[in-house]
């Protein structure tokens, strides 16, 4: 039995997501994410043909897994898991070997183009520690993103998870991801960019 008081979790209600990418822009502003890389983004997929057609959105961000593979493989302990579950990166210790990028099943890590270290979404832990919510949760115009304590039975995230079917991405990887989705569409996830051959 988990004895922790706090385990942060993230819930995205895809019924409310309108694909406006406000979360993407807010994240860039809050964390100073470099040009050309993203910590959080919205995958957009068009489904069907003309009369019967729709768009599917899948906001993606770091899952801050319960069993993070990036923490296991980091040779210099730059990635560490806090007691409340958030996986942090240490910019002063990372050597830019990119092993964590290669092993992350969610491809949410990126190499900072100038600093040459690997960064990722950390659920704005500087804001959480100050008692605020993550920037993308704060900015979401439809309230699709919910952030809260999974150990607290009265929290909004626990209440929503108790009332709805929730899914996580790639549970078969065994990392126990902690970003939950309501109304998750497998087809949107399975539509991937085509493979292009590049000699590099």
């Amino acid at each position: 039995m988990d004895e922790r008081k706090v385990r942060w979790g993230f819930l995205i209600d895809l019924r409310k997501c309108i694909g406006c990418q406000t979360c993407e822009v807010t994240c860039k502003m809050e964390n100073g994410v470099h040009l050309g890389v993203w910590r959080s983004w919205v995958k957009k997929v068009e489904k069907g043909a003309y009369p019967r057609t729709t768009r599917g959105f899948l906001p993606l961000l770091c899952n801050n897994c319960e069993k993070p593979i990036c923490v296991t493989v980091c040779p210099v302990n730059a990635n560490q898991q806090r007691p409340d579950g958030i996986v942090t990166f240490n910019p002063h210790r990372c050597v830019g070997c990119r092993y964590c990028m290669a092993s992350c099943p969610y491809e949410v890590r990126y190499l900072h183009p100038l600093k040459r270290i690997v960064e990722k979404c950390n659920w704005c832990h500087h804001r959480i520690d100050a008692g605020l919510r993550p920037a993308c949760v704060e900015a979401c115009p439809t309230g699709a993103r919910v952030f809260g304590n999974l150990m607290d039975p009265d929290s909004e995230i626990r209440r929503l998870m108790a009332q709805h079917h929730v899914s996580v991405l790639q549970p078969e990887m065994g990392t126990q991801p902690q970003v939950y989705y309501i109304d998750y569409d497998e087809e949107v996830f399975a539509t991937k960019r085509p493979f292009r051959w590049k000699w590099r």
């Binding site: 995958k43 957009k44 997929v45 990028m101 890590r109 190499l111 399975a190």
Partner: peptide
């Protein structure tokens, strides 16, 4: 049936 409109890929 489905078409990818927008996605982010960082680097190999």
């Amino acid at each position: 049936v489905t078409k990818l409109l927008y996605d982010v890929h960082h680097q190999t």
